[in-house]
Amino acid sequence: MSSREEILERVRKNQPAPRPLPAIPTFDAGSSTSIDTFKCSLTRMGGRLVDAPADGNLDAQIRKLFPDARVICSATPEVKGNRPIDSIQTPQELNDVDVGVVRALFGVAETGSLWLSEAQFKVNALGFLSQHLVALLDPAAILANMHCAYQHPGFSEANYAVFMTGPSATADIEGILIHGAQGIRTMTVIPVVYRD
């Protein structure tokens, strides 16, 4: 008998009498979906929210936020940057990116999380090899909490989906919080209305 058959047979033999599956409420009555709530949660998780520039020039704003950045790679047409993502053949080529730029599909107010998938990243590694990440978020695309977020059809459509909440972090040595463990060192969210 194969391992598969053996395991399934033993599980079937041993599993206790079936118990019911409960219905899951969304617990979102009265919950805020405002950009302010999102900002508050994001800040707690080590990210920052920066207002969009009055003149709409995102490229100039990003250069101002990261004056030392040499390579800026954007996966959204709203920001030009200086490394076209379409030229990337293998994800490893993104290792020298100082600032990656993406547009999140939606945000979650409860936690300050951004939902991103391969459709937003173009190359997934952009969200992790870059030293810093800038994400555009439509203030109208904020869901209340994780129950609402997990109803999004993106989870059964995307090959890869991630909630990014602030920068990468570790507190594995004496509980001291370090931002920029293995992934991005900073996360900057700019609220910008999405225009198709």
Binding site: T26, M45, E110, S113, H147, V162, M164, T165, S168, A169
Partner: peptide, 24 residues
Amino acid sequence: GVFIRMLSRSALGSPITQLTSHFR
């Protein structure tokens, strides 16, 4: 939704882990 809301709150007392990744 249920588990992600509780996992990191129970583990480290943070609302969520910095990354919640879904590989399909």
